[in-house]
Design a protein around this nucleic acid. Structure first.
Lengths: 164, 164
DNA sequence: ACGATATATAGGATATTTTCCTGTTTTTGG
DNA sequence: CCAAAAACAGGAAAATATCCTATATATCGT
């Protein structure tokens, strides 16, 4: 096992994802510790990959990205090289913000952010010309009710999935 | 109009969302400017809400959140107070990371992160006991192919949707 | 239960960075 | 083409990150 996360780590993670611009002293005060352990733990969790990218969330509309689509994809092809081409296409296109392979009759779901419906169509045409896809349904978002990167962190007693 | 974003602003935004821990001097060098204009522009874009939360992206699996569902919801009710109750339920539940109101025959889509399938069922039971919902389809993610908060920022010439 | 070793913690010193100020250059409008 | 305004570059003081040292806490074998 790489790193075991304890209650203090979880408090630090919660504070960090809430506001990563806080100083170590502020975080230390919030989590009830001092800056050295907070700093050491952050460094270790960064190295372990528990803490990933430090970023800033931007207003998509202000950047002219006014349309958001969820795309449900069914395919008949499940060969290795088809899948590889498909994955590569998704990963290189910056308008694809999320892509998941699913269980069930729908094979993939994408979240795509584009300036407008025309830009979505361009994306769609480019995608289906690049890889063969059986069936596509696009769901257009009318309203972003909620959008957060804040993961729910259990700060209570540690509930462990498997007994020790 | 609140703030007009120019090419330098876009470069700064791109640098920031790529790595928000960079110093002003580093960003200034990358975007080809000096720290004062970079700092002023960041401050203004923060105030204008173009730049939102500064955060850190965490590894959900490392935190024990191993299951991700996309939930497609159809409802027959479209009255104001039903909708308000529904929105409130979504916004207060931390396992709901995204919620969109859609155009078309599916009314809402949610993205839900939970420790496991049992936790999803608890969430689902709690939700349908709180608000009346006509039809629900849960899509289980088997693999997160891509997940990014990096919005595509056109750093070329400024393409404007409406003519001046 | 006790002591020896390992580990975590608190607070302080230095290097870096943010924040703001001052003088200069560039752009804009008449 | 000149005046007014805006943006810019670099520098100084305050705040912060990073690392060090000493102290406290926990762990393990006997």
């Amino acid at each position: 096992m790489s790193v075991q996360i304890d209650a203090l780590d979880r408090k630090i993670l919660a504070a960090l994802q809430e506001d990563a611009s806080q100083s170590l002293d502020e975080i230390a005060k919030v989590v009830g510790s001092s800056k050295t352990p907070v700093w050491t733990r952050i460094r270790k969790m960064r190295e372990a990959g528990i803490i990933g990218r430090q970023t800033v969330l931007l207003d998509a509309e202000a950047l002219g990205l006014e349309a958001c689509f969820f795309v449900l994809i069914r395919t008949s092809e499940h060969e290795a090289d088809w899948q590889q081409k498909f994955l590569h296409a998704l990963q290189t296109r910056p308008e694809v913000l999320e892509a998941h392979r699913l269980a069930g009759d729908i094979d993939y779901i994408l979240k795509v952010r584009v300036p407008n419906a025309r830009a979505y169509d361009r994306f769609y045409q480019a995608l289906i010309s690049e890889v063969r896809i059986h069936n596509v349904t696009a769901l257009l978002s009318m309203e972003e009710i909620k959008s957060t990167t804040l993961l729910p962190i259990e700060d209570g007693a540690q509930e462990n999935g498997n007994a020790p």
